[in-house]
Amino acid sequence: MTIERPNFQPSAPKPGEYYQRDRDWHPPAFAPIYKTSVLRSPKNALLSIDQSLSELTGPMFNHNELGPLDNDMISNYAKDGDPIGERIIVHGRVLDENGRGIPHTLVEAWQANAGGRYRHKKDTYLAPIDPNFGGCGRCLTDDQGYYYFRTIKPGPYPWRNYVNSWRPAHIHLSVFGPSFSQRLITQMYFEGDPLIDICPIVKTIPDEAAIKSLIAPLDMHNSIPMDTRAYKFDIVLRGRRSTLFENRLEGN
């Protein structure tokens, strides 16, 4: 195996630090409304450390590591026909907090099928597995940071939190960016879903505007007539300073 080096440079001019994370915008580790977080949340404060090469660098991926159908969940697991459900496109850009597109970065997606069932050996929900739907896809953003997936709209599903808790329809998304400090997993929700407002996992996010930023609007302009509806979802990763003055990253 030989790793091919990406032949591009990250978008920002010079190695500068990444902006600190706004911890009031993200969900706190301990959010009792989401019961599983109670025992899985550190009690000590996180230790703030200066970003060194270890944090400013991170893994990169190449187009030739992906297959042509990887971003097409309608066909990447189809055995004897299309999966059941509403055909949708999910598309948008991966940006940094400066609004710059992040090129050639890996976006991975996973989701339940139209009935709300995951193809996972641990999922035992009574909705059936769809023989033609895997529920995972991935792609690299283009040189402007643009990405898209074709898929089936996932169904809501019940889960053990309160007696009667249901997840709104959602797609899980994992994104890299050029630095390990930008690593992010999130979930995308769909405009108009009444379950969003009552979901304990959504409500771990304290800020109403932050919650709104996870809801993808219906995008009729990019829908394909008589075929597929589109939802637009931009993903924002941490931005970075464009200059490095006082704190030298390199040696004397």
């Binding site: 902006y19 706004d22 996010i205 924002v236 990763l237």
Partner: peptide
């Protein structure tokens, strides 16, 4: 500046 996308559990 725009805000970072908030994290959600990997589930």
């Amino acid at each position: 500046f725009i805000k970072e996308t908030p994290s959600q559990t990997a589930g």
